[in-house]
Design a protein around this nucleic acid. Structure first.
Lengths: 151, 151
DNA sequence: GCCCTTTCGATGCATCTGCATGGAAAAGCC
DNA sequence: GGCTTTTCCATGCAGATGCATCGAAAGGGC
């Protein structure tokens, strides 16, 4: 396998660093006003958009580990933002349902989160560059397909 | 503050996801062959390039939290990859020095790490796009300057 | 010199994460 | 039906992280 070109390494370093800085900025903004971290937002949004759903589906949608979601949901249930209700179709699982408080929390988080994203990303590049960035990152943001078998 | 444009959100989502996937890929590749995680590599490389240095300087160079580095170094010292020696100029601190094993470890990690980067990034976009990506990410990969005071 | 403030680095504690595993229900097979 | 395999989700345990704080040394003013 070829070693990475210099430009690949530069892009790599910047990618990791940019994402990390931006993430920290957002997490910090939410924390600073006493709101839960971004991953809670993702769950709340997914449940609001997709309706009540099973952990397995939510996990796939969010792209996180099974045990990560399991415990994340634990905390959110404890915080009354999400409820677990029995799943009629499969007694192993259950449905995750947004509570009223969860709905309100999503709404409360959005302005803060949005402003943080705008500060970290939107305000630092023009529309053309944002579009170019989104386009370039598209292939990297997908799950890698399985390696095609070589003959 | 303006809410983010749709393109900002798309770029944001892809940025976070792309960095996360790529990171996982690299960490997994190293772990799969029994090597330490990428952040160890960063420390080893910084010490190799910059020579023995103090935690404070290393921390700034790596852009991580003070306590994160403190404990990371703890583990690496325990693994004999790094040694702490008294600092002649400042008795509060000490110098972090790469050991022979640390040097060897950096060399051992590089092929694996490099191949992972190549797979995750280099092989998925052409040279032109890599350059464009690096350019677009440049402003995001810098520490945000302090907000200029408004009049 | 002395005192006060700042910087350096480590650490107690609570929380979070990753890995491996567990138990229970469902699906497939005969 | 009965049996094995697979899927679903939780959890014990060890390790990592974040936050606040601490002790020690350095720096600054006098």
């Amino acid at each position: 396998m070829a070693m990475p070109a210099a430009m690949t390494l530069l892009a790599w370093n910047r990618l990791v660093r940019a994402a990390d800085l931006a993430n920290q900025h957002c997490a910090g903004a939410l924390r600073a006003v006493g709101l839960p971290p971004p991953e809670w937002y993702d769950v709340l949004l997914a449940l609001e958009r997709g309706g009540a759903q099973r952990p397995r589906d939510l996990q796939a949608a969010l792209g996180i580990e099974q045990y990560t979601l399991s415990r994340l949901v634990d905390r959110m249930v404890k915080a009354r933002l999400v409820s677990r209700t029995p799943c009629p179709a499969d007694a192993r699982g259950h449905l995750l349902q947004l509570t009223i408080e969860g709905l309100a929390m999503r709404a409360a988080m959005w302005p803060i989160y949005a402003e943080a994203i705008e500060t970290a990303l939107g305000a630092r590049m023009d529309e053309e560059d944002r579009a170019a960035l989104a386009r370039l990152l598209a292939p990297l943001a997908e799950q890698p397909r399985a390696e095609p078998l070589s003959a």
